[in-house]
Amino acid sequence: MTSLLQNLIDGLGQGSIYALLALGVAVIFGVMHLLNFAHGELITVSGYAAVAAFGSNLSWWLVAPLIIVVSIVTSLVIERVAFSRVRGASEFTQLLTSFGIHIIVSAVLIMSVGASVKTFAEPPWIFDRIDVGPLSLEKFDLLVIAVTAVTLAATTWLLQRTTFGLSLRAAAADFDTARLMGVDSDRVIRGAFALSGALAGVAGIFWLMRAGNTDPSAGIDPMLKGVLAALIGGLGSLRGAVLGGLALGVAEVLLRSQLPSSVAVLTDAVVFGLIAFLFIFRPQGLITVQHAERV
């Protein structure tokens, strides 16, 4: 029981990062039906910005907001340069475009800073633990969970209470009708990319803290986790994406700790395989959020 609780909290820490990534993927998919394989590049680029910032002796306290800003700007630039030109094209055209962007970003990084791995110092407290009764919790996990909760609350407020959020939700539900109501399609799409970039930025802070390094293809892993978590939640469903991310994190931690050690190294393979297998039976996503009946 204790170990289960322990795993659950560890898993939520991991899953929170995935949830933020998945939410960013789902926001974009909802508005323009783009499955964004370039989402991880936001973290790659932020990672190099962090490397540069640490080079100028900045501390994590300054680097963290910098990461968010870089992530948002990168997201907007990618939209402007590439995605705005394939808007409304088929899902596959958009998906392959994002795939192409992934390649270009990593290649440009290889050209400009080289293919080698760049490391930086993790914050000193990253492996500190706090004992709560029988549980031994990482400070880092608790921080991730807390920040994610705040970020999700802020996102919820943005989506529920602001005109932009309302426009975004309307555009995701029915783009043409939203335009008929006067929603400016350029603005809402740019806003979606900014939001997606901000969420990736927050996730990126923790991802980079944990990794302590970056390299030109560092985006593949976060992209994959984000995309899969969004799919678990049913693409386009925001609540589903968050739940999908948390579920993915918990599943990973549980598998890693419960599987016999010879198989535990295969956790990623098992998780991917499980997801693929589950998709065969529930391709609309594993978690379906209740929808109102369409009249």
């Binding site: 475009t97 390649i103 990593s106 290649a107 050209m111």
Partner: peptide
């Protein structure tokens, strides 16, 4: 000379992909 470096073939692949998607999908 800043273009002619390691990584150029990859950039070309990526640009080919994105370019064809935009102009001749």
């Amino acid at each position: 000379d800043w273009v002619f470096r390691e990584g150029l073939p990859r950039v070309v692949l990526g640009l080919a992909m994105v370019g064809f998607m935009i102009w001749r999908s």
